[in-house]
Amino acid sequence: MPYNRLDAAMRDLITSFSCPEAADLVDRLARAAAAVAGTPYAGFVRVDVLRQETSCVHVHAPAGDPLRRWLAESGVMKELATSSVALRLARDASVGEPGFLATPVPVVARDHVFVWVAGRGFCDGDEHLLGRFATAAGRAMEAACGMEAAVRLLRGVRAFRPAQP
């Protein structure tokens, strides 16, 4: 079979655009958020457009860790559902409050997304830093979605191109 530059070029584009895995990207972003905040815990929460339901997109915490149960039982998810700004909860170990900070991730989507960190007390500087990180995370998520869309379009171009003589 003769070398076909079009096939090679399309294959190269599709391969290079297919590299970002959405789940891997979110995991990397959560780990980076934890590192930026100097905490062992971080994650992403999605809030529906009606601001009634929340769902954890990703939690970076050891399996079986009590923070996972705290997230579900504390009511912090309900607070995020109604919030459109950063949310900071003070750390109070005597009542089991680990300290929590969440900030909106500016993404062009139908749902609202928050990045959160937990495990210590947080200050205004932490909130500012996490806000900047959230902006970068949003851009990365949008870029990954754009790359996925480009791959779908390129596969269509490749599939429906005219036959080569």
Rank of each mutant, 00 (worst) to 15 (best):
E79P: 00
R110V: 08
E53Q: 13
H112D: 05
C123G: 04
E79R: 15
T54R: 13
E73Y: 01
V57P: 08
L29C: 01
T103A: 08
R46W: 10
G43K: 15
V108P: 00
A32K: 15
L87S: 01
R68H: 04
D48G: 11
A35G: 09
T54W: 15
L80N: 03
V76E: 13
V107L: 10
A63F: 04
T39W: 15
A90H: 10
A32P: 03
P98M: 05
G64L: 08
A35D: 14
D124N: 08
R51G: 13
Q52Y: 04
H60S: 13
G96C: 03
L101A: 00
T103S: 10
V57I: 12
V95H: 05
L101I: 04
G121N: 10
R91F: 02
T82H: 12
L29V: 01
E73C: 03
A63N: 05
D65F: 03
V76N: 05
A34C: 01
V49P: 08
A72L: 08
P62I: 00
G96A: 04
V47F: 07
P40I: 12
K78C: 01
S83M: 07
D65E: 12
D111V: 02
R28N: 11
P62Q: 11
A34I: 03
A61C: 11
E73I: 02
